[in-house]
Amino acid sequence: MKIRHLTALALLCVGTAHAQSAKQLDQQADAMMKASFREQGIAKMDRVEQDAAQKACSAAKPPPATVAKKIEAQQLAAIKWPSDGQFIGDWKEGEKLAQNGRGMTWTDASATPGKNGAMCYNCHQIDKKEISFGSIGPSLWNYGKLRGVTDPADPAQAAIVKYTWGKLWNSKAYAACSEMPRFGHAELLTEAQIRDLMALLLDPKSPVNQ
């Protein structure tokens, strides 16, 4: 009996001294994310359910190139191009949207796309006149000018125009783990709002391209 007790004790010691495996910790972390939150206002619990792109990019290291490419292809296929073929709107409205960081938090009243700002200046320099800009994303000063866009309607410039729309709609189509929100895909902004941001970046008359 004494030997049985000692064996049991030894097994117990081994059990607790043994570190959790990475997989076990992953599972515990997932469970923790679900259990630690509750819904509040417009922020519902579906927000802690990850899609494939979010899941693959939730580690300190980026996913392998093959996984990244697959995600980018999936995201690209999901992009909705302008329903009326119009890519460019009003840059003045675009600048207002870029300045506005409101929307989608649990203290906001509505989750409707039209009510949100695009928060661009949080991460990017855009118009040089604005000195309060973030550095999480690259500078977008002279965006259209640097890419030689003199007329966004010119078929010769269609590739850049399309890329810019695609990037705004779903940034992960071009970089699987991009930190930039998927403004169209996640229904954060309307088509009209994205058209206005397109104008801010590509309209030769926009202050960004002076």
Binding site: Q20, R47, Q50, A53, K55, C57, A60, K172, E179, A186
Partner: peptide, 23 residues
């Protein structure tokens, strides 16, 4: 062991992408 486990859980939480903006 629990302190070490919580460090590992905290690290995973830190890199957890979620919400409508994937933050």
């Amino acid at each position: 062991a629990e302190e070490k486990r919580f460090y590992e859980l905290g690290k995973r939480a830190f890199f957890f992408r979620g919400g409508p903006m994937d933050f």
